[in-house]
Amino acid sequence: MLVNNKVIVVSGGGSGIGRALVLHLLTKGARVAAVDLNPTTLQETAQMAGSSANRLSIHRVDITDRAAVAALPDQVIAAHGVVDGLINNAGIIQPFLGVPDLDEATIERVMKVNFYGTVWMTKAFLPYLLSRPEAHIVNVSSMGGFLPVPGQTIYGAAKAAVKLFTEGLYAELLETNVRVTVVFPGAVRTNIVANSGVNRLPTGTTDNRRAPTALAPERAAQIIVDGIERNRYRVLVGSDARLMDLLSRLNPQFAARFIFRQMKSLLQQ
């Protein structure tokens, strides 16, 4: 689906990949509804849109709140008239802890934001998307959705659920006008660590914002939007995601052990 003149909803639009998606879509002629929990960062996104801000609406919504999500399509249609696309990008990581050390509230929060938020948003917008001549749903999973990362097991489980949910949705909608894409980002220079409320990184690791091999969010957004316009089934974002996707297909046990060796300091703290 070409994005020019389309109305596209982007969750997590206040920062990181979400903000980059909003701004990139605007440069390509789309109209955008940016959704985020943080009203301050949403306003910052709107300011960065500059002269394109007249094609942007901002919506402060907690995507884990089913009632708030159910009311969102009417708000988007009131602002733009229609809705043609949905990018479920919002997500959080977990604290870098093993499963025995995670409290139940944290586990529930990670699952609610990453998985249930994606499901509620999809269910809310899908009836409207089915009524359009063409439409597109993009769900952002993670490299951690197909590759186990010690200290991020619940996050990975949530993103693996997003993966299979998206693949199932693709199959269900094959004979409709709605195309479906699942996205697997690797390391991207965003502030997801701070936004997730994680205040401690494991020894030997670095915040993605300072990782030399991490992809710029603007480049990630370009890759994702290109995937939409080419109706891609899967989009791998970054050389690390492509490499680990290949490795996990060829030898999943070796891939798991490789990541363990890279991240074993997580289990020693």
Rank of each mutant, 00 (worst) to 15 (best):
V237L: 11
L247Q: 07
A158D: 00
G18H: 07
F96C: 07
G117K: 00
L236T: 09
V32D: 08
F184V: 04
D245C: 06
L37M: 12
L97V: 11
R210E: 11
L173T: 14
K264I: 04
I8V: 15
A161K: 02
Q262V: 07
I259P: 01
A53H: 06
P95R: 14
I77S: 05
P185M: 00
K6N: 04
A241K: 00
Q262K: 10
I92S: 02
R66C: 03
L26K: 02
L169G: 03
I137H: 06
S141D: 07
N191S: 08
V198Y: 13
V182L: 11
L25H: 01
T166I: 07
L201Y: 06
F165K: 03
V225Y: 00
G85F: 00
Q75E: 15
I259N: 01
P217E: 01
K159V: 13
D226K: 13
G227S: 11
P127E: 12
N88F: 02
G144M: 04
I58E: 07
A241S: 15
R242H: 04
A46L: 10
L174K: 15
E175F: 12
G156I: 04
H59Y: 11
A46Q: 13
G29L: 02
G98C: 07
P148N: 10
M244D: 12
I92E: 01
I154H: 00
L126Q: 14
T206H: 09
E104L: 10
G14E: 14
R200S: 08
N5S: 13
E167N: 15
H24K: 12
G168S: 15
R232D: 13
V61A: 09
Q152P: 03
D207Y: 07
G98Y: 04
S248D: 03
P148L: 13
G144F: 05
T122H: 14
Q262Y: 00
F165V: 06
S52H: 14
R109F: 09
R179Q: 10
V188H: 06
T206S: 15
E108V: 05
G197P: 07
V237K: 01
P100F: 12
G168K: 08
M143P: 05
F184W: 09
K28G: 04
D84S: 11
K163A: 04
W120R: 10
S239N: 09
Q94V: 09
H24Y: 07
A33S: 12
G18W: 05
R261C: 06
V225T: 11
E167P: 04
G168N: 13
F115S: 01
V193H: 05
N5K: 12
H59P: 02
I17V: 06
K123F: 05
Y128W: 10
A78C: 05
D101R: 08
A46G: 05
T45K: 03
N139M: 09
D245H: 15
T106A: 06
V61S: 03
R209W: 11
L215M: 15
R209H: 05
P95E: 11
V69H: 07
T27H: 12
V162I: 14
A68I: 02
D101T: 06
D101P: 01
N5Q: 15
G12P: 04
E108N: 08
T122I: 05
